[in-house]
Every structure is written in structure tokens, then in C-alpha cells.
Design a protein around this nucleic acid. Structure first.
Lengths: 293, 293
DNA sequence: TGGATATATACTCATTTCGAGCATATATGG
DNA sequence: CCATATATGCTCGAAATGAGTATATATCCA
């Protein structure tokens, strides 16, 4: 799962007309899985890769049809700067909110939430066999989707996807697509959408305590651009003065001396990431003000 | 990697006379890797498993000698209550600080740190080829081991182990064990000690925001016992009143109504974990006051 | 030319959280 | 009865956090 941010939107590299994440067989002859992966992706996409992190290893039986030969899939999260050349054939960048329309709260609560999802999940909860199961489904729904006083928690991406899967509100949950339910968002091959949800959750958690956003930024940027990137990933807006306060007091960036031009509004200072903090803080922690309740 | 806490010490299940972590081939015929693992461990150790989490998947070439057939190893972290019957043959619980004597700061700075480790790492740093490499090694050492004003960070277990490995201060780093260096702590088979370090780091990070400590506690416990377990894992002491404040104000536990007896000092209330918070908070977050700087 | 508008940047303030110390209560052991 | 060990409750100041306000400097367009 390869992520970038452009024009204020989080993008993910897809293949097969947006129906799958890039994947490939493991090549022998590399020192490690990571280096093998890096070579493979850079060759496929002509993008230099920044940060790479392992997501999860699957070997579940119901993934591939046949029993005898089980495939082990190791999923990765990688960050890149999109700017450069177009991706290789077949591969395209897609806004990840295409696949998770309920996850973008930057312009308020997405219409699909009160419109389709909440009613659908309520119906699913009511359809449970007994009372305790019903109330458990109700509670999980309320926590995951921030209903009755629970507040939206942007990190619960995977829990939300799994609820929708259990409630059969996403296409992947159906073997045969006969149902006349309103299904939410386009499906992807296999469990690729689940991997996507895992990666988004991981990234949303990580930007709060590791300086990984900078892997997604161009070499030089304004503080507002940085803020927009964080907001794109988190799917929610942050308080501008507080954002700047945190960035500056942690000395994550330094001024380049130059300013933006050709923009609406007052020109902004351009900053660059202080790469020396990687040594100090990659390890020791950072914080971004994506609120926590 | 199977973890428990008894008599105030963090233990890990080992085999081969403490030289290896339990491991086994993947059995087909299970629904998923996790369920397969759970069955396997419960059968091997006769311990019911609580929490399970995937650690990391390796397939590095230098792990097994031969090239043609590469083994993929998926490591897991699992938590259990030790109380019950003795483990199966060959398997024994060991204090994990046997393998990482420099990680236990509950009684102050371990003597091995100023005695052997810091001098060893300094020598290694000085032996670097050029100035920038020297200062980089110095800085990594200072951050990881909390030297010159950096403060001890208990989560950097893996970084510390890797430094010691790079500096060839642990036995695993030597193919031939000819060197006359003072080597620190007993080695384990393959990269098992590295897996252990990864697991400890993960667990130390996790107890701060997820209620996983309770997986290691008996059904009923005092607040001090709970505190001692946290301290055992974290390798550092916590402030008692603040610890109690956090536990109580988050309503993680409830009184059983009974008290301890046969103890020195004033009898303490016994508590049990409120399992309902798993629904609310397993997902939404918790905090423990293991300090962060 | 002069608002309207958009962005940049600086400062303030109340609330919450956190780390640390102090005080008191109730047991055991001699 | 006193030393000691543990339990439990309270206070206080420093730091972090969330939210609001004010001012500066651009562009756009009537």
C-alpha cells in the first residue's frame, strides 16, 4: 500500500483500474523482505520510496480458494512524494476516500453516514438473535462511528470497516452479489480494502507521534500545506494556531528564507524539514495536534 | 514470545534450556494464523492464552544458511497468566532481564551500564572511520541509553539491542566466538533475542495506551500488585499516588469487596478488571503513568 | 482606487493533565 | 509501645492543551 498526498488529498496507488493494490510475488535474492520490496516498487512505479513499514501477514484459508497450497501475504505501508512522473502502466493514484467515503470529516459529517450507514447498522443490530447481542452491536456501532455522545475517533478505521463487513454493507462481504442492499463504496480484490483500512488506521495513529508526514511533503513547503496534509490523512481539521505552535516549538522545521508567490493572500514563509531531528526524535517522539476525543 | 508476570518479575517462556523461544512449523488446516498459533501454544504449554499480537515477519537471507529454500518466520507476542501448572517438558519461564540486564532500572541504573556497555559503545564509536560517523554513533548511543542529558526511555529496547549488536557486544553478533570482548547477557538461537527485544519494546509501548496489563494479572489483585506488574514490564518505578489516580479515574477496575490478609502492612482492597471497558476502551484508549521523558 | 476576501502570523486565556510531595490510616513484628 | 511496612487520600505548581482574538499583507474585482 503506497501512499502520497497531492493537492490536499490522500492518494493510494492502485492497479487493475482501481480494483486492487499493487502486489507481487516475493523475489529471492534480496537481503531482506524490505529491500526486496523497495526494489520492486521503485521498478514498478519509478517512485523513490520514503518510509516503509510492515503492516500484517495473512495466511487465512478463506483467502485463496484452494486448500493444499496456502499463500502467505505480507502487506506493507509505504510513503512517497507523488510529484514526479506518471506511474507505470495500469497504476493510478486514487483518493483513498473513494473507498472510504465515511472517513472524511473535513467538511463535516459525510452524508453517507446518517444517510445509509447508521440506518444500515441499526437494522443489523436489531436483527441480532438475542438482547445482549443486540446491545453489543449497538455499542460497538456507537463507539466506532461516534454516535450518542461518543465523539468521532479517526483512528478506528479498521473497526468501522469490520462492522460494515459484518453487517454486510460492503460488497466484499457478499459471495454472490444478489442482495438489494445499498452497498457502500467500491469493492477491491480479495481483502485489499481491509489492508487499506489497516494502513490508514496505522498512518493516522503514527502521524501523532512520529515525524512521518514529512515523507509525504515536497522538499519545501508552507506550514499551511503541512497542516493540510495532516488534515488529509486524519480526515479532520485541526486548529491552525495550535498546529503552528506545536510544529515550531518542537523545531521540526527550519525556514528556507524564501516565501511563496503567486498565491491568494499574504505570502507565507517556506520551510524545510530538519533532517537532524530524525536522529533525535524519529525514535524519541513527536506530536501533532490531531485531537484525541 | 509468550509473556507472563510472577512475583513481580516479567517472564518469558523458553525452550532448549533457555536458549530459544518456542516456535513451530505452520500447521495447515486452521482458519487463520492466529487460531493455529493459539491451538499450538495451548497444546504445547497447557496455558490458556490471553492476548495475541503479530510482531514481525522475517524472511532474510542471512537467517538460514542455505539459499534455495528460504524460511518465512512470523513472530508473535502473547500474554498469559502464569499461575497454573508447570509448563510442558523442556519449556521454562525465565526472567526476561536475564537476557537484557541493562533494561531493568527499577533499582537504579544497572551496574552493567556504566561498567561495560557505555565504555564498550564509546570504544566502538571512537573506532569509526571518519568524524561524522563517530559523532553519529555517539549521538545514537546517547539517545538510546539516556546519556548526557537525554533521559532513559524504556521503549527503546530494540534500538539498544541493535546498537550492542552493531558494536559486537553481544554474542550473536559474532560468527566465530573468538573475541575476547566482554559480551553482555546470554545469547539465544538465531535472532530470538532480537524478537524478544521487539516484543518487550512493543509491550512497553502498549501498556501505556491499551489495558493489556490485565491479561497478565490474576482475576483479583491489589492496586500495588497491578503497579508492580506495570513496573516489571516497564523496568522502572512509577509514582504510587499518581498510578492509583489514573487507574481509578478511568474506572478500569472495580472493588470486589474483599481485602487481602496475611500480608505485612495495612490490608488492601482487592479489585477486579472491569471487562466491560474492553468494549469501550480496548479500542478507544487508556493511559498508565509510565513517564515519558 | 478601495473594499472584500484570503491567507499569514502573533498573542492570550481558561482548563486539563501531570509529576511530585505530604499526611494520615491500619496492619505486623518484636 | 514503637519501628516498620503498606494503604489511601489530598494538595500544589508546572506544563500541555483546546479555543478564541487580533493584526498584517497579499490578491481580486467592482
Amino acid at each position: 500500500m503506497l501512499v502520497a498526498v497531492t493537492t490536499g488529498q490522500p492518494r493510494v496507488m492502485t492497479v487493475e483500474n482501481g480494483k486492487a493494490l499493487p502486489s507481487g510475488p516475493f523475489e529471492l535474492g534480496h537481503r531482506s523482505l524490505q529491500s526486496g520490496l523497495r526494489d520492486w516498487v521503485e521498478q514498478q512505479t519509478r517512485h523513490p520510496l520514503g518510509y516503509i513499514e510492515q503492516l500484517y501477514t495473512f495466511a487465512d484459508r478463506d483467502r485463496a480458494g484452494d486448500e493444499a497450497q496456502r499463500v502467505i501475504s505480507i502487506s506493507y505501508l509505504a510513503l512517497a512524494r507523488e510529484e514526479q512522473a506518471a506511474p507505470a502502466d495500469e497504476a493510478t493514484w486514487r483518493n483513498w476516500y473513494n473507498y472510504f467515503p465515511w472517513e472524511d470529516h473535513r467538511d463535516g459529517v459525510p452524508p453517507a453516514l446518517p444517510g445509509v450507514i447508521v440506518p444500515g447498522l441499526n437494522a443489523w443490530a436489531k436483527a441480532a438473535d438475542n438482547t445482549s447481542m443486540r446491545s453489543e452491536r449497538q455499542q460497538r456501532t456507537a463507539i466506532a462511528f461516534g454516535l450518542d455522545g461518543h465523539g468521532w475517533n479517526e483512528e478506528l478505521v479498521l473497526q468501522r470497516y469490520e462492522l460494515l463487513y459484518e453487517a454486510a454493507l460492503v460488497e466484499e462481504a457478499h459471495r454472490s452479489r444478489a442482495k438489494d442492499l445499498t452497498l457502500i463504496g467500491p469493492a477491491m480484490a480479495g481483502d485489499h480494502r481491509r489492508i487499506l483500512a489497516t494502513g490508514i488506521a496505522r498512518l493516522r495513529a503514527k502521524i501523532k507521534y512520529r515525524p512521518v508526514v514529512f515523507e509525504l511533503m515536497p522538499p519545501v513547503f508552507t506550514l499551511l500545506q503541512l497542516q493540510r496534509s495532516v488534515e488529509a490523512l486524519a480526515g479532520r481539521l485541526v486548529h491552525k494556531p495550535n498546529f503552528r505552535r506545536l510544529i515550531e516549538q518542537q523545531e521540526l522545521v527550519e525556514e528556507t528564507g524564501t516565501m511563496t508567490a503567486d498565491m491568494r493572500g499574504r505570502p507565507a514563509k517556506l520551510f524545510r524539514f530538519r533532517h537532524d531531528v530524525l536522529a533525535e526524535r524519529a525514535v524519541a517522539g513527536t506530536k501533532l495536534p490531531v485531537s484525541r476525543a
